[in-house]
Amino acid sequence: MSTENAGLARQLGYTNVRAFLGGEPAWSEAGYPVYASNDFVVKGNIVLLDLRSGDAPVQGRIPRSVNIKYEDLESRMDDIPRNAPVVLYADNLDDVTDAYEDMKDAGFNTVAMVKGNFQGWVASGGAVESGPIFSNEIKWVRKLGKGEVSVDEFRKAVKGELPDTFVIDARTPDEIKELGIFTNTVNIPLDEIPKRMNEIPKDKRVFVHCSTGARADLAYRELIKNGYDVKFLLLNISDPECDCPIIIPE
């Protein structure tokens, strides 16, 4: 994308055009700061962390923020879903920078800062709320991505409550022998899907799952390409959240 834009700029007559091919991932990997747009801080599906200590958050904070002072961040890290986009702010550059690097190191993919910290937020006219804080619980729910089925809907299907749905388990027969298979589910390993397409009914909706969602995603692409109405489950099925009935082999 950067080279495409750079090429376009050259065509438009710009003489001094450069491309930073490493881009945002290389930038943040090097520990340099990235900022979230203020609008995204207000509306995005994010975990917004206020890293300040003492009374400051009670005096004024960004709405929707959760107060975890920097000293406590490490011990609270496991309460934050790793796939959640995280936005951080503090009242000094050191805390927010350290927290940014800690979270990157801990495996958070999308971490950004509020531009200019809390002071910058206020200066830019961002909304502030004040008063007592009743909860510092993190309540973040991932929004379903393209082609994903919700766990609730998937569970209904394997319980046989959705008669027009055909559920495929894309794991290998060995995995199923060891761990069992969900009820109302047919095993077609990912690599056999192209040649066993005739076993998958065209007039039903198709759900695909595997062990974590990676193979199900690939199966989804293959089935979409072949004209199926298909969704996949992006979940580690050993996650208690799944809670789907399993047939354990004898």
Binding site: N5, A9, L12, Y14, N16, V17, A19, G23, P25
Partner: peptide
Amino acid sequence: KNQLIIFYCGG
């Protein structure tokens, strides 16, 4: 048109 322009992306 002589201003330095830098583009980046993210993979």
